[in-house]
Design a protein around this nucleic acid. Sequence first.
DNA 1: TTATTTGAACTGACTGGTCAGTGCAAAAAC
DNA 2: GTTTTTGCACTGACCAGTCAGTTCAAATAA
Lengths: 209, 209
Amino acid sequence: MESSNAASGGSTRREATRQKLYEAAVTLIAEQGFSATTVDEIAERAGVAKGTVYYNFASKSVLFEELLRHGVGLLTASLREAAERTARDGGTKVDALDAMVRAGLVFIDRYPSFTQLYVAELWRTNRTWQSTLMVVRQQAVAVVEGVLREGVENGEFSEEIDVALTASALVGMVLVAALDWKSFQPERSLDDVHSALSRLLQGRVSGRR
Amino acid sequence: MESSNAASGGSTRREATRQKLYEAAVTLIAEQGFSATTVDEIAERAGVAKGTVYYNFASKSVLFEELLRHGVGLLTASLREAAERTARDGGTKVDALDAMVRAGLVFIDRYPSFTQLYVAELWRTNRTWQSTLMVVRQQAVAVVEGVLREGVENGEFSEEIDVALTASALVGMVLVAALDWKSFQPERSLDDVHSALSRLLQGRVSGRR
DNA sequence: TTATTTGAACTGACTGGTCAGTGCAAAAAC
DNA sequence: GTTTTTGCACTGACCAGTCAGTTCAAATAA
């Protein structure tokens, strides 16, 4: 168990099957919800036998939990990368936030189903994967909070801002705007959406032109 | 049929039962999701027999749909009232937005389960109540869009803002901040949360004190 | 007041179907 | 020769929706 053959980073046959199962599960669960999605459906869409699902995952819940971990991991890495890149290029903290907004949009553009499913589960209670969700959420939000905190320290942001709440609000702004974009105006370009959010972020809303 | 005894406006026995069922369903579905919640559970929590659920609602889905309509109706009325009150008092459009942010917070404070359930369903596709959801969503968002549009017309907001997208972003800001508040820092006061969001809304984030 | 009737509201055992998870022998991939 | 996948039959729990029968409250009759 825990064989971890090939240090190359995940290209065993098993890994490929798991990936197919993730992809099948993510769209189905985003559309229908976890409980309404059957294991038979997931297997069928992945082009795999039902037994294979259980050979690769202990249960339906476990499959879902690992899917959550996997997806949020990608997002967190992407946010972190955006923040670090901006810092390296000598940008301000506002620039960093803006870069993270873009990174968020790119992520949602690429994985809309995952985002949808994540939002649907995030504030639920009494579910088995609740603790997993809590952990990964915190990892992602912490990146935003970190930038805000550094901005307060270097005087770029007011000392009176509430870091945790402001981070939530910023995440919400991007999340909802992006989900609405994808759901109701999918033809718009990412740049377009990004510039609208940038304007809001930088308070260039009030006042004439 | 359609007896409608007492023109007093809704205090029949039937209405009371429906109300109990709404209350039971909203918390259970918020916690577990629609599919994972059984009709037996709803009936039990409402203190009513299963048959009564089906006497009052055609199906589990219909119960849920009417619950959605009911809840979003309350929110929309509250937002509209906030906007109109501000206008009557001679406030600016920013004041109106601020009042609506507060109205949103008050709503979420009072009906956290409903909000949670609404968010979980909003961006799903392929569900029977999708069209219902679309309609009520638009009613609520339209109130925010209206204020933004009026603000652009009277020169208070830049002509370059994207009304639909900005409205989504504002809704998201309040929604996510409030849900995080309720989930992770429920001891904080509404005023506290409101003032943090006001600061963000008015762009008083950048710059020293 | 008290008895009877009426129809709406409610009850809960039951049905027919669904689905997560199992077991396993044989095939395929590596 | 070891790991992984397949195919498929099977089980036991669970659940949406039904329906024949019961209760309730208000109206009418006595």
